[in-house]
Amino acid sequence: MTGLKLITFDLDNTLWPVDEVIRQAERTCGAWITEHHPEASAALTAERIRSVRDRLIGEQPDYLNNLTRLRRDAMAQAFIEAGFAEREARHIAQDAFLVFHEARNKVSFFPGALEVLETLADSYTLGALSNGNADLERIGIRDLFAFHHSAESIGKRKPEADMFRAALHSAGVTATQAVHVGDHPLEDVDAARQHGFHAVWANLIDLSWPSDLDQPSHYIHNLHELTDLLPLFDD
């Protein structure tokens, strides 16, 4: 079998810019804690949570495979270290994470993203591969994708092979029939190449390519450009 069948997309900074989304979600979460648990708000400064998260990752690197657990546990630990009983700390952290996650999924797409996805879904199998915890159902684009694999659902984050293998299994295709589109030079582009996929660097936020990686063969600065590249992968 030849020809392109599957297109997989990274999500954050590929279909939408994410940095301000996360900052706003953190502000929303902090405001909720201040309103509902004012005695806990002093323990949840951004710097404090960052410090606790870094420590947790240092102690258990596997946290990077589940950012939901990492953020929730970091909040709980910050509350515990501020003097809260563990049960209460974890209860507040769980509720606060739900507030954070709702706001985290209020994204604004890059120009043309929805139009391109809708067009491609008519001709190709589309899949989402993400290290993050975006929820396609909440965002409103779940119906455009045949599957969504994440570091949380697979248990390993990109650039490991697991997520890419899962995509091929879900779509019933070989790696030569698949192209992965993503913003991260190592976790998306180089990983896809290493695992046999075609790769497109979606450089929509003007990153610099790392000097220690081979230059990408294909790149775009606007998602509309993707449709012009796809015939190159049909040979």
Rank of each mutant, 00 (worst) to 15 (best):
H101C: 07
L56K: 14
Q77A: 07
H148V: 01
H224M: 01
L56S: 09
Q77N: 09
L168T: 02
H37E: 10
G127M: 07
L204N: 07
H218S: 15
S211Q: 06
L223Q: 04
A134P: 03
E137M: 05
T34N: 14
S123E: 10
E86Q: 14
S123M: 00
A85W: 01
H180E: 06
D12S: 11
A40G: 05
E35S: 14
A151R: 07
S211T: 04
N13Q: 12
F110C: 05
E187V: 05
A166V: 00
D188A: 01
V189Y: 03
W201L: 10
Y124V: 02
D62R: 14
F109L: 13
G172R: 06
E47T: 07
Q77T: 14
D183M: 09
D212L: 04
R138S: 11
D162Y: 02
D183E: 13
Y124H: 14
S153K: 10
A78P: 06
D212G: 01
A146C: 01
A76V: 04
G30R: 15
D188Y: 02
A192Q: 06
D19I: 03
A161V: 12
S130D: 04
T8V: 07
T227W: 00
A76E: 01
A82L: 10
R90N: 12
T125P: 02
L126V: 02
H195Q: 12
E225W: 01
L204C: 12
T227R: 15
D73Q: 14
Q77S: 13
W209D: 03
K158Y: 11
L15K: 03
L136K: 10
A167M: 06
H101A: 11
A43R: 03
T125M: 12
L11E: 05
E118F: 03
R48I: 00
L117G: 09
V200Q: 06
R72N: 06
R104S: 10
L6A: 10
V200P: 04
L232P: 00
M75P: 00
E86D: 12
V99W: 01
L223A: 07
E86I: 14
K156G: 00
A43I: 01
L67K: 13
L230R: 05
F233E: 07
L114Q: 12
G30D: 11
P17R: 09
S153A: 11
T227A: 13
G172I: 01
N65W: 08
A128H: 06
F109Q: 11
A103C: 11
T8K: 04
N222T: 05
Q24K: 15
L229R: 04
M75W: 08
R104T: 02
P210F: 02
H195G: 09
H148C: 11
L226K: 03
Q215N: 13
T8A: 08
E137P: 00
H148L: 10
L230W: 00
E225C: 08
D12V: 00
E152K: 15
E102W: 00
A128I: 06
Q177M: 10
Q94H: 13
E59P: 05
V99Q: 13
L11H: 04
H198E: 04
A46I: 06
A43D: 07
E20W: 07
I7K: 08
L204G: 06
E20A: 14
D95N: 15
I205R: 15
Y219I: 00
D162A: 15
Q60E: 11
N13L: 07
T8Y: 04
D214A: 15
H149I: 01
E20F: 08
H195W: 09
H198I: 01
S51H: 09
F145L: 05
I22T: 11
R157V: 02
K158S: 09
A40M: 09
A191V: 06
